Measured scan of single mutants.
Amino acid sequence: EDNEEPDPLPDNWEMAYTEKGEVYFIDHNTKTTSWLDPRLAKKAK
């Protein structure tokens, strides 16, 4: 069984939802937002 907990978001990142219910990510370090999960970006490298 694969019950892995997702990795926590990096420091100062926040997950948020648009009015349409779409997930996006806020990077408080750089005051930017991203559609890409920063956790996935790390694994892709």
Rank of each mutant, 00 (worst) to 15 (best):
T33S: 07
K43V: 13
T33H: 00
A16Y: 04
T18A: 06
T32V: 09
E4V: 13
R39A: 03
S34R: 02
A44G: 12
K20C: 12
Y24G: 01
E22S: 07
E1I: 00
K31N: 14
T33K: 03
D27A: 01
D7W: 12
P8G: 11
Y17V: 12
H28P: 02
E22A: 07
D27K: 00
D37Q: 02
I26C: 06
E14L: 03
L36C: 15
R39L: 02
E1G: 12
N3D: 06
D11V: 10
E22D: 09
R39I: 02
V23A: 05
R39M: 02
P10C: 02
G21H: 10
D11L: 14
D37V: 02
R39W: 02
G21M: 08
G21E: 08
K42D: 10
K20M: 12
N3R: 15
S34W: 01
D7A: 15
P10K: 03
D2L: 14
E14V: 06
K31G: 10
N12Y: 02
N3G: 10
D37L: 01
K31H: 15
K31E: 10
L36G: 07
N12A: 09
Y24W: 03
W35S: 04
E19A: 14
K31P: 01
P8H: 09
E19S: 11
P8M: 13
E19L: 09
M15C: 08
P6A: 12
E14K: 07
D2C: 15
T32K: 06
L40A: 14
G21D: 08
T33N: 05
I26S: 01
T32S: 10
E22G: 05
P10I: 02
M15N: 02
L40W: 08
P8A: 11
K20D: 11
K20Q: 13
P6Y: 11
Y17R: 14
K43I: 08
S34A: 04
K45V: 15
E22W: 03
P8V: 11
Y17N: 11
W35F: 09
L40K: 15
I26G: 00
E22T: 06
T30H: 09
D37K: 07
A44V: 12
W35H: 04
K45G: 14
M15G: 04
D37H: 02
T33L: 02
K31I: 03
A16V: 06
W13V: 06
R39T: 05
D7E: 12
L36E: 09
P8I: 08
P6L: 12
K43R: 13
T30S: 15
L40V: 14
S34L: 00
D27V: 00
T32H: 04
E19Q: 13
T33V: 06
W13R: 02
F25K: 02
D27G: 00
K20G: 12
K45R: 15
F25L: 00
L36R: 10
P10A: 03
E14G: 07
D11H: 11
T32C: 12
T18Q: 00
K43A: 14
S34V: 01
K42W: 15
W35V: 04
N29E: 10
T18V: 00
D27M: 00
D7R: 14
M15V: 08
D2Y: 14
P10S: 04
L36P: 01
T33E: 02
K42G: 12
S34G: 04
T30D: 06
P6D: 06
P6S: 12
